[in-house]
Amino acid sequence: MYPHERSLVSQLADKPFALLGVNSDPELERIREIVKEKNLNWRSFWNGTDGTRGPISTQWNVTGWPTIYVLDQEGVIRYKNPRGAALDEAITKLLAEMGHSVQLSHENQGGEQP
């Protein structure tokens, strides 16, 4: 997951696009270390000390990790749990609706080990 996500964030840095995480690790210090260590380049909400039972994942009825939602510019949910190529396709389509044409390619992107 990490390389794909890193690659999306860096390739779409100048586009109206954001990848927002909701992190469900109960130990904040540990996850901050991991973010640094693995060069994770997106912003995350923290789900709190209850981890997977934290307030955000509970409100969103998340029962499996990872869970992915793709929202358009109006905040409308357009896709649920697209993975890999399907995620790229979803993002490309929504950006095209806004008049941004993008070509995503993940070869040698991110540069780091997973």
Binding site: P16, F17, S24, W65, T67, V70, Q73, I91, L94
Partner: peptide, 13 residues
């Protein structure tokens, strides 16, 4: 983040 395409990713390491 309204006005942007947003991917929300519930994740954990």
């Amino acid at each position: 983040y309204r006005g942007k395409v947003v991917v929300i990713d519930f994740w954990g390491d």
